[in-house]
């Protein structure tokens, strides 16, 4: 009897390791400084995590197919610069387009999102039509995207100056609240919810799991694998593009180096959240837990007054050990 109970407990822990780890982390920090458990802190962490959630959701789609996108950060930089350049106040001294009349808010945003989607379409074609491994395809396109962003950013009269003076209605997207809840948080929750619905309840989602689990089996089951991959890369890029726009709105500016290396944070969050490195395994709640583990480390360590550089060491340890523990679920016991 005792044995069965212990086994059940062990099983429960290993099945829910990520969530328990997040809980433990919060408890430890709250133990050191009980003020951590306040609404302000929760709000701050949610705020910091929201763009990361959007990026991680995009990355999740791709990792699930067994691929990867090394260009996520560069797309963020691209769309941040694009949207910011068209959304400066008309009385700002160093305007990107000195003579551009005030646009309705959605037009520059739409242009930026479309630009991001174009990158995704490009990735999708290279990967699904020409069978270039995603690692290499996105490694190539990210350099191109960075080049384009930098050339655009360097256009006169801007000449590589940080873009500032953004319109209030735009920055409101990134820093404003509705009913006390930051808009950006609402958007992140919305996107995560849609992704959860798609991956648990629709055939498109299940097909994606199938492709990552066994591509050949998916093919002979009549799934259009190439089309599915194409859509996945495009949609993921849309997520990155949206995150880029929100980053510009949140910080009130943009440079060509925005988003640099963000893809690695997203990949780390997904893997810590239980997504398989070979594809076919992973859940949205897991990914959210992954993002929040890093969010809590980021915010919590500063909150209890530890040298912020310690974060990096702790993050690295978490990546390796969380995955080492989580993967035990899938290792065949001999």
């Amino acid at each position: 009897m005792q044995n069965v109970k212990i086994k059940k407990t062990i099983n429960f822990i290993s099945q829910n390791f990520i969530y328990l780890f997040l809980l433990l982390l919060i408890i430890i920090i709250a133990f050191i400084n009980p003020n951590f458990l306040s609404l302000t802190c929760l709000r701050d962490i949610l705020l910091q995590c929201s763009t990361r959630v959007i990026i991680a959701v995009g990355m999740f789609c791709i990792l699930l197919t067994g691929g990867v996108d090394l260009g996520a950060g560069r797309v963020i930089g691209f769309t941040a610069v694009l949207s910011a350049s068209m959304l400066q106040t008309t009385d700002y001294a160093r305007r990107f387009y000195p003579n551009l009349p005030q646009q309705p808010l959605f037009i520059p945003i739409l242009i930026a999102l479309l630009a991001g989607v174009v990158v995704g379409i490009l990735n999708g074609i290279i990967i699904s039509r020409f069978s270039v491994p995603p690692f290499i395809a996105t490694l190539g396109t990210q350099v191109i995207v960075y080049g384009i962003t930098s050339i655009y950013f360097d256009l006169p009269p801007n000449n590589s100056q940080p873009i500032g003076g953004l319109r209030k209605d735009f920055t409101f997207l990134g820093s404003g609240s509705i009913g006390g809840i930051p808009i950006i948080v609402i958007l992140a929750i919305l996107i995560a919810a849609i992704a959860w619905l798609v991956f648990t309840k629709t055939s498109f989602g299940k097909n994606t799991y199938a492709i990552g689990g066994n591509r050949q089996a998916a093919e002979v089951s009549g799934i259009n694998v190439k089309m599915t991959l194409f859509i996945i890369y495009t949609v993921a890029s849309l997520c990155f593009a949206f995150a880029g726009v929100l980053e510009a709105a949140r910080t009130g500016g943009a440079t060509n180096n925005y988003g640099f290396m963000y893809e690695f944070d997203a990949i780390a969050a997904c893997f810590v959240g239980g997504v398989s490195t070979t594809g076919g395994i992973g859940t949205i709640p897991g990914v959210l837990a992954g993002v929040f583990i890093f969010g809590v480390i980021n915010y919590g360590l500063t909150f209890i007054g530890i040298n912020p550089y310690w974060q990096y060491i702790l993050k690295g340890i978490v990546i390796v050990f969380a995955v080492a523990f989580d993967i035990r679920k899938y290792i065949a016991k001999k």
Binding site: A210, A218, S221, G222, I281
Partner: peptide, 22 residues
């Protein structure tokens, strides 16, 4: 019925069966 094809190991029996036509 394919000789060398393995199913999708992490998914359920019913998902494997109705894959592509849920």
């Amino acid at each position: 019925i394919h000789q060398e094809l393995h199913p999708i190991p992490y998914r359920s029996v019913m998902e494997n069966i109705w894959l592509g036509r849920f």
